[in-house]
Computed example of a mutant assay.
Amino acid sequence: MTIRLTLDGRPVDATLNDSAAARDFAALLPLTLDLSDFHGTERIAGLPRRLDTSGAPDAAEARAGDLAYYAPWGNLALYYRDGGSSDSGLVILGHVADGDTERLATAEHVTIEAGS
């Protein structure tokens, strides 16, 4: 599924994978979230509810451009740098279009909508 992220007024295209968590995330759209930095690798925001992570692997290794859900905290993570070692409870939801990861690093707000 294609989605559109608007980061501080600038559009970025992304694609969600076909996991249960990604489908559950898509059901929440549209969303407008305030972002904060976490560990110099990702922008994070709380979601209105926890996502269904049935069938998800126990851990995933995030790469720059990944959209992910961190199940222990119930938050969305937008990675602008590689996340390093695999993280227990991290579920990859999708990926932003190549070349658009630099916008993630400084974004304060994001609106996420289903794509056309």
Rank of each mutant, 00 (worst) to 15 (best):
D82M: 11
G55Y: 09
F25Q: 04
H95Q: 13
N17W: 11
L33Y: 03
G115M: 08
P48A: 09
R10W: 14
I3Q: 02
R4C: 06
T111S: 14
H95T: 12
D58P: 09
N75Q: 11
D37V: 13
G55T: 08
A77Y: 01
E108I: 12
D34M: 12
R103Y: 02
G9T: 08
R43H: 09
E113I: 10
L90C: 07
D52F: 03
A56M: 02
T15G: 13
W73E: 04
Y70D: 03
F25N: 03
G89T: 12
A14S: 07
Y70E: 06
E42I: 08
L33H: 02
V96A: 04
S36I: 13
I3Y: 04
H109S: 13
T53W: 04
L16S: 00
Y69K: 10
G84M: 11
G115K: 14
Y69A: 10
P57K: 10
R81G: 05
Y79A: 01
T2H: 15
D18R: 11
G40A: 12
L90Q: 00
A20H: 13
L35T: 00
L29I: 06
D8T: 07
S88Y: 10
T6S: 12
A60Y: 00
N75H: 12
S88C: 06
L5Q: 00
D24I: 06
G46S: 15
S86P: 10
G89V: 09
I3K: 03
A77F: 02
Y69P: 08
I92L: 15
V110D: 01
D66Q: 13
D18G: 06
A59C: 13
D18S: 12
R103F: 04
P11T: 14
P57C: 07
R4L: 11
L78H: 04
D34W: 13
A64T: 01
L28C: 12
P57A: 11
S19I: 00
T32F: 10
A105H: 05
G74D: 05
D66W: 05
L5W: 07
G65Y: 07
R4G: 04
D37M: 13
T41N: 10
V12P: 00
D58W: 11
A59Q: 10
Y70A: 03
H95N: 07
A21P: 01
S19P: 00
P11Y: 07
A59Y: 04
G83R: 00
A27S: 14
T15M: 15
E108G: 15
R10L: 13
D18C: 04
S54G: 15
Y70P: 01
A20N: 11
T111V: 14
P57M: 08
D13T: 14
A64K: 08
L29E: 08
G46M: 14
L33W: 03
E113Y: 08
R23C: 00
F38R: 05
A97K: 13
G94H: 05
L93T: 03
R43P: 01
E108T: 15
A14N: 01
D52S: 10
A71Y: 02
L29M: 07
L47N: 00
Y79N: 05
G9R: 14
D58E: 13
D98V: 07
N75S: 10
L93Q: 01
G40Y: 06
V91C: 10
S19E: 00
R4W: 11
A56R: 00
E113G: 12
E113C: 07
